[in-house]
Computed example of a mutant assay.
Amino acid sequence: MLLAIGMLRQDKAIDFLISLVAQGKDIDAKDAIAALAIYREDRKLWQRVDRASEQRANQLGL
């Protein structure tokens, strides 16, 4: 049961970091990407980071 609770916390933390990539201040987005870099080998998670980055670029008109 503790493992499941830990996974939920981890999922929420990852979701939070990805939200910073998409909508946070520039410095926070950069820091979030750096924090998420440990998951670079997780293709599915990194696709989420890429989508969040694209969403950010679209919002900024880049």
Rank of each mutant, 00 (worst) to 15 (best):
L2G: 12
L2T: 09
L3Y: 12
L3T: 09
L3I: 07
A4Y: 07
A4S: 13
I5H: 10
I5E: 15
I5S: 12
I5M: 11
G6K: 14
G6D: 13
G6Q: 11
M7L: 14
M7Y: 09
L8D: 08
L8C: 06
L8W: 09
R9S: 06
R9G: 08
R9C: 06
R9I: 15
Q10K: 15
Q10H: 11
D11E: 12
D11S: 07
K12Y: 10
K12P: 02
K12G: 05
K12L: 14
I14Q: 03
I14S: 00
D15K: 13
F16S: 12
L17P: 00
I18W: 01
I18M: 01
I18C: 00
S19M: 07
S19L: 04
L20C: 05
V21E: 00
V21L: 01
V21F: 00
V21P: 02
Q23T: 07
Q23W: 05
Q23E: 15
Q23D: 15
Q23I: 03
G24N: 07
G24V: 05
K25I: 06
K25N: 12
K25E: 15
I27L: 08
I27K: 14
I27H: 08
I27Y: 10
D28F: 07
D28E: 15
A29W: 02
A29Y: 03
A29I: 05
K30W: 06
K30E: 15
D31Q: 10
A32F: 00
I33H: 01
I33W: 01
I33T: 04
A34K: 13
A34Y: 08
A35K: 04
A35L: 07
A35I: 05
A35P: 01
A35N: 05
L36C: 04
A37P: 02
A37C: 08
I38C: 09
Y39C: 04
Y39S: 04
R40H: 10
R40A: 11
R40I: 04
R40N: 10
R40F: 05
E41Y: 09
E41V: 05
E41L: 10
D42F: 06
R43I: 07
K44Q: 07
K44V: 03
L45A: 06
L45Q: 03
W46E: 01
W46A: 01
W46R: 01
Q47K: 08
R48T: 00
R48E: 00
D50S: 10
D50H: 08
R51H: 11
R51N: 14
A52M: 02
S53I: 01
S53A: 11
S53F: 02
E54Y: 03
E54W: 03
Q55S: 06
Q55L: 12
Q55T: 10
R56E: 03
R56K: 13
R56F: 02
A57Q: 13
Q59C: 06
L60S: 13
L60N: 11
G61Y: 09
L62C: 04
